[in-house]
Design a protein around this nucleic acid. Structure first.
Lengths: 143, 143
DNA sequence: GTTTATGCAAATTCTTTGCAATACT
DNA sequence: AGTATTGCAAAGAATTTGCATAAAC
């Protein structure tokens, strides 16, 4: 009956990771918060009986395996969120839009569709930042 | 004759900051690298005779006063760049586009014009990330 | 002369590493 | 049983704080 846990277990096993209680709790936390991203400190608070070192390692493992991604990194906090199902160890698909509310500090995370319509109605936009990674023309031509 | 130094001095004095050699050297470094952003480690290397603590404090002061901004923060490095002239202690205008080359790791920083044309020719784009800050509809309506 | 910046020392916080014990498959 | 994961201890790195000295205005 518990399909939620089962799907999380499957997610882990597909990537050759063992389905431990800590990892399942971690993922369940992120899943429950979708589409909002969760800060490290919130994760640490939620998993207060888990050693910090383990959380650091868990995060690193999940980043490597394409299970989570950094949704936003401000000076104060790093926000993490679940990757979409296309992500894997080999490739991450990170074309998305992060919206951080200046009031409640929540970061929500939506996938970008081809036609970028980011005049989100009823959102008061104060800051837009587009970060693009790739290969610049100088590096492109010298290759 | 030295209008460059003079304009940097003016930039500082307009914000009630003293024009010390360290600050001028710092700003000159960023200015020379425009439109590329400069990492903290590069700054530290360039200002190797300056105490680390002083650099930390200088960066914090400049961020507060709207003289510089973080162009991009990856896991490894924070990149800083000069703000445009519209920024001040009161308000930052941070609508810009950061492009990080996967090959040379350079981050370049361009202001966004209203019509977002980010299909930069001759740039091979691997990752697009849009970060928007503002007030979400939930916080907006409860105000 | 007064106030702001800087440098040094030390404290604090954050993150990583090594290794033994434990838990998963 | 065999391998991956976790916890603890400790090392290492990064950042912050306090205070006395020095420099800018």
């Amino acid at each position: 009956m518990d399909t939620t846990i089962d799907s999380l277990k499957k997610l882990l096993q597909e990537r050759d990771l063992r389905a431990t209680p800590i990892r399942l709790e971690f993922l369940e936390l992120l899943r429950l918060n979708t589409p909002s991203a969760v800060t490290l400190s919130v994760i640490q608070e939620a998993c207060h009986n888990t050693d910090r070192v383990t959380l650091y390692r868990t995060i690193q493992t999940f980043l490597d395996k394409g299970i989570i991604h950094k949704a936003h990194q401000s000076k104060e906090e790093v926000y993490y969120a679940l990757c979409n199902s296309n992500c894997s160890t080999k490739a991450h698909f990170h074309d998305h839009l992060h919206f951080k509310c200046s009031s409640c500090s929540q970061v929500t995370c939506q996938h970008l569709n081809k036609e970028i319509k980011f005049l989100l109605p009823s959102f008061q936009i104060n800051k837009v930042e587009i970060h693009i990674e790739g290969v610049c023309n100088r590096c492109n031509t010298t290759t």
